[in-house]
Computed example of a mutant assay.
Amino acid sequence: MRSGPQRVVLKQGTGFRLICLPFAGGSARSFVKLARHTPDDWEVVAVQPPPLSEGGALDLDGLAEFYLGLLAGELHGPGLLFGHSLGAAVAHRMARLRAPDPSEDLHLVLSAPPAPVAPASDLVDLDDAGLFALATRRGFLPEWGVSQDFAMRFLLPNLRADLAVLGKRGWVPEPVAMPVHLLGGSHDIAAPPASLAALDVLAPRSTHLVDGGHLYVTEQPEETARALVRIGREAGAPGPSEADQTVA
């Protein structure tokens, strides 16, 4: 079960800031490996979803408001607000709820975003065996090498609760005032590369692919970091030569 701080500094830095929002079933610690591969001067901050024991379930607006409160002093650039999967939908909703000042120079990165207007109620209503089978097939669960029994007891409750955030309406991509970039996995079944092309309504400034499945952010952290460095150059990060020298 998730516990501990709800805002975690994964890496100290003095320059560029990377703010990470986790995927369904994930946590702030899901970005530890990614943080290790970011440039030396980058600060990496991640948020921890509220524990299941803290009150009732949140909807998309509620989770966005929760994160806005946690990050009230850090939503400025130069930097990236980076959400993966469910985190992408929440990051987008944060941008809709909060009117950013253009001078903040904070860019929005939607990584493997959920299919637009796809309700999660059908997934949430599955029994444990059904949800485990579907999550495994779509790559929602990290490859930890744990038993099915362990996954169903300790991973599925968080995954189910997080999927419920999307509710019956799902995620609705709408224009936001922040500059938007899209990131996807070349072998992602849940959010295939072709789905990114359907997000023209967001007027993305760039689209990048990482060689991997749905959880490339944890399974391919070095390549994900390189993609973020490329995106970061548009948001005030160090130039090509300096950034390339500092990425592990």
Rank of each mutant, 00 (worst) to 15 (best):
V210P: 02
L71C: 07
A191W: 03
A235E: 01
G213H: 04
R137P: 08
R153S: 12
H187E: 15
D244G: 11
P114H: 11
V165H: 01
L60E: 02
D61F: 10
N158S: 15
T136R: 10
F150C: 11
F154P: 05
G73H: 12
S206V: 03
A129S: 10
L68G: 01
L34I: 08
L18A: 00
P50N: 14
F154W: 15
I231F: 01
E222I: 13
A243W: 05
P51R: 06
G56K: 10
T207W: 05
L108M: 00
G77V: 00
L183R: 09
L134R: 12
Y216I: 00
P173C: 01
V176E: 02
L10N: 08
F23Y: 08
V176C: 05
R93G: 00
L215F: 06
R93K: 01
E219C: 06
C20R: 00
D128L: 10
A135L: 03
A88T: 03
L209W: 01
L60A: 08
R230D: 05
Q48P: 06
D127E: 10
T246H: 12
A237R: 04
Y216L: 05
V180R: 02
E242G: 09
R7K: 11
A190I: 02
A72M: 11
E54V: 15
D211F: 07
R137S: 09
E43D: 06
P102N: 12
R233I: 09
R17T: 13
S27P: 10
G239Y: 11
T136S: 15
R138Y: 14
H76L: 12
R230P: 03
G185E: 00
G25N: 06
A190D: 04
L10R: 03
S27F: 02
H187R: 15
L228W: 02
L141F: 00
D149L: 14
A203I: 03
P142K: 03
Y67S: 04
